[in-house]
């Protein structure tokens, strides 16, 4: 068999990195520190975060955040659970942090999203659940802190000075 010269990462490494991504998908409410993920992938801790980002376009912790927010959005839409319960179910330790990160990523509060989504009509019953949730995944290309900074700059709030 002719040997293919890969231009990017080794497919067998990518396949092992995918295993770490799959594990986060399956249990995004759990803590996924780099040593745990590196072990799943059989990659050294020093190389894991960089390899993951090269493969999937986002660092592992940010990927985990998008999965948690995605799950929270689904629970807000599909259940009548209290928001604090949803926060704990999706892996946050505090309601405050959950609400802040949720707003930073989605642009609205959990309760506002719930009211809007529940009012809208959904015809997605024929689509397998996981593909619906993938389509609803927040597309987080920049760090949450960066997104926050840009938005406040857009709003001009950073440059605001008190006028006597």
């Amino acid at each position: 068999m002719k040997q293919i010269v890969a231009t990017g990462q080794d497919p067998q490494l990518l396949r092992r990195l995918l295993r770490a991504k799959d594990r986060m998908d399956a249990a995004s409410h759990e803590e996924w520190p780099v040593p745990r993920l590196a072990k799943v992938s059989g990659v050294s801790e020093a190389h894991f975060a960089r390899s993951f980002r090269d493969a999937f376009g986002v660092p592992p912790h940010r990927y985990l955040l998008t999965r948690r927010i995605e799950r929270a959005k689904a629970l807000l839409r599909d259940t009548d659970w209290a928001i604090i319960d949803i926060a704990f179910q999706t892996g946050w330790n505090s309601l405050g942090t959950f609400g802040r990160v949720f707003r930073d990523i989605t642009g609205e509060s959990p309760s506002a999203l719930r009211s809007r989504e529940q009012a809208a009509h959904h015809a997605l019953e024929q689509v397998p659940h996981c593909y619906v949730s993938a389509a609803h995944r927040p597309d987080l290309k920049i760090a949450v802190s960066e997104k926050r900074r840009r938005e406040s700059a857009d709003n001009g709030t950073e440059d605001e000075t008190e006028v006597p």
Partner: peptide, 12 residues
């Protein structure tokens, strides 16, 4: 292209 396709599969 073949290598890219194999990589895409490995990335799920």
């Amino acid at each position: 292209t073949a290598a890219n396709l194999v990589e895409a599969v490995a990335k799920g």
